[in-house]
Every structure is written in structure tokens, then in C-alpha cells.
Design a protein around this nucleic acid. Sequence first.
DNA 1: AGCTCATGGCGAG
DNA 2: TCGCCCTGAGCTG
Length: 269
Amino acid sequence: MPEGHTIHRLARDYAERFRGTAPLVTSPQGKFSDAAELLDGAELTATDAHGKHLFLGFRDSDWVHIHLGLFGKVAFGPAPAPPPTDTVRLRLVNDTAYVDLRGPTTCALITGTEKRAVHDRLGPDPLRPDADPGAAQERIRRSRTSIAALLMDQKTIAGVGNVYRAEVLFRHGIDPYRAGRDITPAEWDAIWADLVTLMRDGVRDNRIDTVRPEHTPEAMGRPPRVDDHGGEVYVYRRTDMPCHVCGTGIRTADLAARNLFWCPGCQPA
DNA sequence: AGCTCATGGCGAG
DNA sequence: TCGCCCTGAGCTG
């Protein structure tokens, strides 16, 4: 599930349950044991998110840097915690709650300086108030790379993944293969504003919904979504199914080792 | 039991 | 561009 909205939601959920407490910190799997020992009993003082990167701050100085990658998962539950399974990389437990982290690409103890370096190599995040969409626009304006690839490039814009990429391009009728340099400033402004809205909704609902009210199953008199990824979408994983708007078959292709989805009718070359 | 696929990203060549 | 890392669900036998 991990696109940016998931990570920002996790930052909030970790904070809600653990900020201001000094949880028991363990690594049942063993791969994070040394760091867990250093953090055990320390107060969790802050959480932060930038794009798909999650940070848990302890004793105002130490940070756990987490990246879920494609497989990582986080599971919260009420205390007392059940016996952990052997894939739990990081477990926090306090009087009221526990949380298990499994399968992350990254789970590392870092300093504030190292955290800053992570922020520095990421592009603006539509979910962060300090984000500067102009920085993303500047890279896109100068690039011959396709807008579909640029939206997935975390140095250009942070937090967009394969679902938001496909959906936002559909919502703006943009051919995914169009070069970044051919995206107009007005188009970029609209894409950015739309991402801010869509991703905020994603944080609130903990899922990705991109279908406008007039195109919902109820409004269109069609059956609800078939896909089980968790939300109502226009093109993501709807290969060969009719477009909700124009009826054209949704197309799929490989782009930089990821699946790309678009409607050739609504997003003409 | 073994294969495939997934909302990600890195380093080697 | 490719191979590789992390895990688990949903198939196929």
C-alpha cells in the first residue's frame, strides 16, 4: 500500500499511539536488535514523513528511518501485544498499544544530520506544507523524459507512486509518454493542485480514490470496482476494461520496470 | 510446494 | 536496463 499518503498516515498513527511515551523497543527478527537496544525505554518525541520516507524521533535526537519499499507493512494493535512472528523487524509496545513493522527496505537508526540529507535528496512532497512545486516544475520543464517517469522520480516529486501517477495523468487528459518539457506551466499547476487534494484525501481515508462524483459507479449506473487495491480508480490495474468516461479499453505497458496504465481515448498522444 | 505478482528503490554494468 | 533486496497473498499443481 505504500505511496506517500500511507506514510503520512503512518506518521500520524505512530504519533497518536506512542508520542510522549517510552515504549519497549524490540526487533524479534534480529536485524535491528542493536539499535532497538539503544532505543528501548527512550521517549518517542516526534514523527515525520517526506514522500515515502517515515521517521520516528526518539529523545529529540535519534531517528529511526523507515522505508517500506514494495513489501513493507505496518500493523497496529492494542496492548498487550501477541507473541511476534519471526519477520517483525521492529516492534514498539507501550501500556495501550503495539505496532509491528515487517519487510521494510530500510529500517535504520540515523542522526538529525543524516535525516536532513534524506530530505535534501527528495523533491517537494504535495503532503508537506513546506513543499515548493516550482522546484519540481523546473526539473520537468527541462526534461526530455516522459512525464510518467518523472512523476515516479522521487528527486523530482516525492510521494507519488504507481497509482497516483496513473490516476493524475488520466484526470488531466495527459498522454503518459509526453515529455516533461512539453507539459505547460498551467498543466503542471493543475497536476500539483490535484495531487495535494487527492493525497490529502488518501491520508484521511487511508486509501486511494480518484474518481470524480459524476463518474462513480452510482452516478454511471455501473457495478462497483473489481480491483481490490482499496479504492475507486479510473485506470490503475483496469487493463482492457472500458474507460469509465469514454468506454475505450484501458491500456497497459512497461515503463521503467513498472506497469503503466492509461486510456488512449481520454489521454491522446 | 512452488510459482507469480505487488502501491519501491538501489547499485552494477 | 537488469538483477537484487524486503514479504505475503493468491493462484497452480
